[in-house]
Design a protein around this nucleic acid. Sequence first.
DNA 1: GAGGCGATTGGCT
DNA 2: GCCAATCGCCTCG
Length: 195
Amino acid sequence: MSSAARRPQLPAGFFDKDVETVARALIGITLLIDGVGGIIVETEAYDEDDPASHSFRGPTARNASMFGPPGHAYVYRSHGIHWCLNFVSRAVSGVLIRALEPTAGLDAMASRRATGEIRRLSAGPGRLCQALGIDKRLDGRSLAQPPFELSGGDQTVRITAGPRIGISRAIDTPWRFCLEGSRFLSRPAPRMSDG
DNA sequence: GAGGCGATTGGCT
DNA sequence: GCCAATCGCCTCG
């Protein structure tokens, strides 16, 4: 393994923290699935006592992964059509991965998405999963094992926070986090309300 | 068991 | 901006 260009892996215990901390820490991290992916630029946090979270009304077959150990994936189907990827953190929680800046395997992403428009390859949770080939098979899988590869986090990034998107409960909780200035967000950045 | 709704997206008015 | 697509889960009866 070449050393210089290799990004550092995430430290042990990265996901064993409260969900808001993890959601913020994930901004700027590189996510690859079988070598395809990019830099995480947008996340949302969903906590245990959060009325907007799938876990709010207790465990079901769908949300079982959220009740499992940190550092695993929770993948669910949205609106019967799309897949959405979450990272489980401490306790019953999940970080929704909403957008990536594509950096690796752009050909594969464009092929799966049937578009060459880079800015829309993985801007949005459903688009991201389509571009990276994510589906139910990855639900419950460890993020420390292939096909997942997470790295980076060595550099400081500026983050903006705002309300989460597309929910009807707890709509004012500012748990959507974005990389400041990114052109690869699913929606316009929230008004700068955070550092 | 029936009816409604959703952490979305793409296409049309 | 509005709405359909499509299916698993929730609520109510």
